[in-house]
Amino acid sequence: DHIGYFLGRRAGPAFHHTRFAQRYASRLDKTEQLLTKHGELSIILGRLIPAVRSVVPLLTGISGLPAARYTRYDLIACSVWAGGLGLLVVSIGGLINQAE
């Protein structure tokens, strides 16, 4: 996640001048406004949604969210992800033990 974030920070200013960014300028503007307004929530939810998971760090870096703020919410997102995965494994293990 942090590699994607820092790639976005590095490419941020130049990214806005690419053909892709110019073609989808309105969508990218809306995305950046959303990330600026709800950056923390998008980082946390972005980790939990598979299709969005790899794009959120890059877009967050491009939007210019400060690194300390990104790291803080990424650690929260990692904790939520790890806790949820742990609960899922324990629950499945309990179901398997009951079936035996």
Rank of each mutant, 00 (worst) to 15 (best):
R9Q: 12
P13E: 14
P13R: 09
A14D: 10
A14V: 00
A14R: 13
H16I: 10
H16V: 07
H17P: 00
H17E: 13
T18K: 05
R19D: 11
A21L: 09
Q22M: 14
Y24D: 06
S26F: 11
R27L: 13
T31I: 14
E32A: 05
Q33M: 07
Q33G: 11
L35I: 09
T36V: 07
T36Y: 05
K37Q: 12
K37Y: 07
H38T: 08
G39P: 06
G39Q: 03
E40P: 01
S42M: 15
L45N: 02
L48R: 07
L48P: 08
P50W: 02
P50C: 00
A51K: 01
A51D: 01
R53Y: 03
R53P: 10
S54P: 14
S54V: 10
P57T: 02
L59T: 03
L59H: 06
G61T: 00
S63T: 11
G64V: 00
L65G: 01
L65V: 15
P66G: 12
Y70W: 14
Y70V: 01
R72F: 15
R72E: 07
D74S: 12
I76T: 15
A77H: 13
A77E: 11
V80E: 12
W81F: 09
G83A: 14
G83W: 12
G84I: 03
G86P: 02
L88A: 14
V89R: 03
S91L: 10
I92M: 11
I92W: 04
G93R: 07
G94K: 01
